[in-house]
Design a protein around this nucleic acid. Structure first.
Lengths: 124, 124
DNA sequence: TCCCGTAGTTCGTAACTTACGAACTATAGA
DNA sequence: TCTATAGTTCGTAAGTTACGAACTACGGGA
């Protein structure tokens, strides 16, 4: 089994991060990891009411890891994953919060359709 | 020639935005558009010291447009393109600035490698 | 009105990427 | 050692992307 690849902070690219998080499953996994403080892969076999095959899940974790978003560590038979958001925040301030917030807005449908609440922007 | 497709603001997705901007050429085009206030496609036939074929460029503009990032308008024989960042900022606050800033950080190699300039953060 | 030049689009195809099942490796515990 | 659990890798089918060639759209003469 080939060793886990974790890019050093200065090798992390914006393109890599955006690409990794442009997939809805990976974005959900990442948001899930950021919510708790770490989790094992199999916690995400079901995510957003959708079941994800084990092999696909493994590839998604690899993508997140190699983009530098996640740190994975073997603990016995399990793989423990945590986000690297503190590091990334230092290198690219505002990037991850902006993305996570946008995903949240989209999921909860906030500005979406402006449910008769509409921050009273020029009531025209 | 099929008509230009501009998604309405509530149909714009985070995944779409991230995917569109995860391509270095598209990210550069978008940053270029955000810098000036609008430009025509052929302004980007050369970008980041790299020449981009016309057909590829056209596809990139289509991708940006259909992700909701750019508005294109025919003006005579040219296509005038502007970013939709004000709209997007309302729906996904902080997303676009975070991404643009991250690209800038990466391009100017700020935290990256800390070229002996290093904003004198704890001189250790 | 016709013709030409410029700006951008579409089509076809070759190259690349992704998803997932089957078969595998790694570890813990009995 | 045997078994169960957790995750990885491989092969392949399906999807996506890049780019040249051929096209459409528009403006400006003559």
């Amino acid at each position: 089994m080939r060793p886990l690849i974790h890019p050093s902070i200065e090798d992390i690219t914006v393109e890599g991060i955006l690409h990794a998080l442009s997939d809805p499953v990976r974005a959900a996994i990442y948001a899930g990891l950021a919510g708790r403080n770490g989790a094992i892969c199999s916690n995400f076999l079901t995510i957003s009411d959708r079941s994800v095959p084990k092999s696909t899940l493994s590839q998604h974790f690899r993508a997140l890891r190699e983009a530098g978003l996640v740190r994975s560590e073997r603990r016995g038979v399990e793989m423990h994953n945590t986000t690297r958001c503190t590091e990334i925040e230092q290198r690219f301030p505002g990037l991850i919060p902006g993305i996570l917030n946008a995903h949240k807005v989209q999921a909860t449908g906030q500005p979406r359709m402006a449910k008769r609440k509409q921050t009273r922007s020029k009531a025209a």
